[in-house]
Design a protein around this nucleic acid. Structure first.
Lengths: 293, 293
DNA sequence: TTCATTCTCTGACTTTAGTCAGAGAACGGG
DNA sequence: CCCGTTCTCTGACTAAAGTCAGAGAATGAA
């Protein structure tokens, strides 16, 4: 990281806030304070619980209550106690509220369009691509790896999605019972490790290392959530697992993969894994890889 | 412009405001309201006039006055009437004020660094490049072309910088008196046109069309400020001049250029100009171009 | 010299966006 | 059924960020 990079980031921050700041003005044009307007965006199709609102926006409970009452007075929301719990209030948008939110949405669209309109088609495409890249890399910066127990809620969530994705992508479907097992105990220290990647408080990827009994470890359960692909998460997880392997004194890592998982194969090759002859009878595998640490 | 692009821009806006919004928090840590903190960034080495402050930040005069008095009470600025005009007040930073501004600057640096730190070197470079691209294209969107009289202040400013740049870049220097003339009258409607490109209220580029007496017009005075290069300004100006030429019933455009102006030559070729034999005795020219409209 | 204008400042006021303390209803484990 | 906890709401308060009207000094064109 150098001075040039820092200065570029600062220039970027300056110009982008100038541009994006216009959104607040345009929201205010609707004659409603920003606090209220922001609230409208938090409603799902089934509404929200007040406590969820409070937590998501990190606002004082009294403040939220007051904001909701203003919205209610304007006929934009109605409050009801839907859940079994009589303490929590459920708030839903009325038809008028939904219309109002649409309007704010249209204002956001307008602002976005105003960035694109003055440009020529080729420039527009360049802008959008550059924005996607910035978005990706800013998000990537928020990724955090944590060692978790394989039976933790986060790990379970990842594994379920992983298995489901395998079932969809493998030509033959996927049945965990037919595959070589990697039990929880194999992925729990010191026998192995299970790493979960977190983004915005959500688990978005995982990977496991099974140490085995010799100098060769196995990489298992490498997965990244579709919502977080392109952020380099799998690579980060893989490198962290390799680090763990080195710490554990392993000399070599192995893994096998299915031919339909092409991104994974590309990653392994980039990271220095060489394809080798099959070293096990995993029925779902088509490629076997190995790397000397 | 399509839905996909709009949605990408909106996603970008959302994530960037989240990230950049952290700057306000970090500024507030200094225990001073944002309004005051923002003011500190507006002081040049010679200070500012209060009225300039008011205009630049578009704030109420009473409000600015009050903000300045708070800063003064904190010993960060001093007020004096430096100009001949006894009504306008001149405000300068004290040593303490300069130190304070440095501190805010460091906070901005820190925020910028926090974007880069979690990334790997290659990703950092990608982020910085993408940010530069976004910055460039957002700025490009703010460019506006206006027809100006060649003797207007804006046109004069452009031409002076243009001549100065030629003097620096031509191996032989540049003396307008030795060059083929293009007088103000040749660039004033209906004999010709002078276009100035504006960005953020500053003239940042120009170009002229001299209609001549036949069906052939001449492009002259194509220039872009070094502060605004890479935004496609010259191309925009050139196309606007061609449009004017078509409206005027011209069938052909000509121009000549010096061999040291390589970007200009590249532009002309891209825009469909063909190099032709010299059609005049301009002493500073090495290349002559022509385009059928 | 006069008079409209410009520039800065002061006082009075408003809205927004919170914070804090506590009340009262509902819940849930023992 | 009791009691501590959770959830929402109300009242009272504050700071920030402005807005508005007008006063007073300085300026400059007629």
């Amino acid at each position: 990281m150098n001075e040039r990079q820092i200065q570029q980031v600062r220039r970027f921050n300056r110009i982008v806030t100038q541009h994006v700041g216009a959104l607040e003005e345009s929201y205010l044009q609707r004659g409603r304070p920003l606090g209220q307007a922001r609230l409208l965006h938090e409603f799902g199709p089934d509404g929200v619980e007040v406590r969820a609102l409070r937590e998501r926006l990190k606002l004082d409970s009294g403040y939220v209550s007051r904001l909701l009452r203003s919205l209610q007075a304007q006929g934009l929301v109605t409050t009801l106690s839907r859940t079994g719990d009589g303490r929590v209030r459920h708030v839903v948008l009325t038809a008028k509220g939904r219309a109002e939110r649409e309007t704010y949405d249209a204002l956001s669209d307008e602002l976005a369009a105003s960035f694109l309109v003055p440009l020529e088609p080729a420039q527009r495409e360049r802008l959008v691509n550059a924005m996607a890249e910035v978005e990706r890399l800013l998000r990537a910066g928020g990724v955090e790896l944590r060692l978790e127990r394989p039976d933790s809620a986060a790990a379970r969530a990842c594994l379920n999605q992983y298995f489901q994705e395998l079932a969809e992508r493998f030509e033959s479907g996927f049945n965990p019972a037919r595959s070589n097992p990697a039990g929880d105990e194999d992925m729990t220290p010191p026998a192995g490790f299970f790493i979960v990647a977190w983004l915005d408080g959500q688990p978005v990827g995982c990977g496991a290392l099974k140490r085995g009994d010799g100098a060769t470890g196995e990489i298992k359960r490498m997965w990244t959530s579709p919502t977080a692909r392109g952020l380099g998460i799998a690579r980060k997880v893989l490198r962290a697992l390799e680090e763990k392997a080195r710490e554990s004194g392993l000399a070599r890592l192995r893994l096998e993969t299915n031919r339909s998982l092409t991104e994974a194969q590309a990653l392994y090759r980039q990271e220095g894994y060489r394809e080798v002859a099959p070293f096990n009878r995993e029925p779902y595998a088509h490629h076997w890889f190995e790397k000397q640490l």
